[in-house]
């Protein structure tokens, strides 16, 4: 059996969704028989391979211009795109930023905070620019599979991956489907 290729990336996220993937614990050994992990924050490949992957997994929402680019790159390179976790599904906790203009948010972070001395808002061509609003990834790319939860449980993730390995689109039900 040829292994299915997976690439993963985290965007406006806390890394918790990727950690929940690791929480499948020993089952990772089983999974690796059927799955090849290509690019991912946990490996040293920086971008999905040119020839593409079967499954692309995005955790985290869209909060800056770099993340938008990354989501689009993943969409281009994968057949099935999975939005992993509440942030990727609908923006999650980061949506709280949408109640404030981004200038105020930056100002609080880099100028006003009590411990900041002679602050200024960082600005450089190497830094991504904040989007006006935070959103789920489906605002910029088409999503095929949604796995909500903050984070989704390891069981939900394992179930979804085994379904994908078997060529099925996972349908989460019962305990496996939860928002936080």
């Amino acid at each position: 059996m040829t292994k299915i290729k997976i690439a993963t990336e985290w965007l406006e996220s806390c890394a918790g969704c990727h950690m929940s993937l690791l929480d499948i614990d020993e089952r990772i050994l089983e999974l690796l028989k059927y799955v090849e992990i290509t690019s991912s924050p946990l490996t040293d490949l920086k971008h999905p391979p040119e020839e593409g992957v079967d499954v692309g997994i995005l955790s985290g929402g869209i909060g800056n211009s770099d993340q938008e680019k990354k989501a689009k790159e993943m969409r281009k390179k994968c057949k099935i795109l999975v939005a992993l976790g509440d942030c990727a599904v609908f923006g999650g906790i980061c949506n709280l930023r949408n109640f404030f203009p981004k200038e105020e948010v930056l100002n609080r972070g880099f100028v006003e905070t009590e411990s900041t001395s002679k602050g200024k808002i960082p600005k450089s061509e190497v830094l991504g620019e904040l989007t006006d609003q935070v959103s789920g990834v489906n605002k910029v790319v088409k999503v095929d599979v949604y796995i909500p939860g903050c984070p989704p449980s390891a069981d939900s993730i394992y179930y979804a991956l085994t379904e994908l390995v078997n060529g099925r689109i996972p349908v989460l039900e019962g305990d496996l489907l939860h928002y936080d």
Binding site: E12, A15, G16, L96, R97, F100, L106, R108, G109, V126
Partner: peptide, 27 residues
């Protein structure tokens, strides 16, 4: 190259929500 804004967007929340909100800073 990332900034999410917790210092601002927690304003207006009730204090007892903070242990739940701020842990989402890091997974």
């Amino acid at each position: 190259n990332q900034f999410r804004g917790f210092e601002k967007f927690c304003e207006g929340r009730l204090y007892f929500e903070m242990p739940q909100i701020t842990q989402r800073i890091c997974g």
